[in-house]
Amino acid sequence: MATETTAAHGAEESSSLVFHPMDQFIVKPLFGDGAIAWYTPTNVTLWMFLAIAAIFALLVLSTSKRAIVPTRMQSVAELAYGFIYKMLEDICGKEGVKYFPYVMTLFMFIVCANFLGMIPTSFTTTSHFAVTIPLALAVFLTVTILGFVKNGAAFLGLFWVSSAPLALRPVLAIIELISYFVRPVSHSIRLAGNVMAGHAVIKVFAGFAAIAVISPVSVLAITAMYGLEVLVSFIQAYVFTILTCVYLKDALHPSH
């Protein structure tokens, strides 16, 4: 995203094009240049805390007046609440509502991190597998544990497709089992991959802007990609959340 950096690179080496599309994903310490230990405050910390601040502003500060006739910000907060609540209720039914704060946390974090990542020169935390894999694993483990706690061994019925012919069931069970364990992988890579790819593409277009003749096209392309990425930011958060709801439904009602 950092267009200035590209311009600087372009000035240094005006003859040759320089692309560093992946530099925007480097994790840097906030203070000094030392090694990155697990506790070091880094740009990850900064942008995650900004996400917390954004969520706090949107859901807590805007609703502080508890107005019957909502202000604009309050109605956005209410929309977000209603959106996720309805999604969870539609998919999981009444029992799923218990897990609403959990699902809402995931959605709000991802959507805010994605949109903060759209700010030029920002760091996009959700573009890292190190972030999305724990998110997906948390969902996977929650669903698996919850499934066994709620249903006991009956949870394994999820893999035994009783509506299929008996001969096919073992084959389907293997397929179901594989697809079950692939879930966290696809769940996490979908999010990080989409966000990373979009940001990298924008950066590549920004690299082309160093050439005067191409730069108008490049700027247009960046604009178009940016619009697409705004869409992707929301859609990926939505997809992650709706899949979480679907997986949660499997845990609550394992029968097909």
Partner: peptide, 19 residues
């Protein structure tokens, strides 16, 4: 480790604020 650590902190904070 760094990212996971801060992610966990962030999620816990968000979860507490929300719930």
């Amino acid at each position: 480790p760094n990212q996971i650590f801060w992610l966990v902190i962030t999620l816990v904070v968000i979860f507490l604020v929300l719930s």
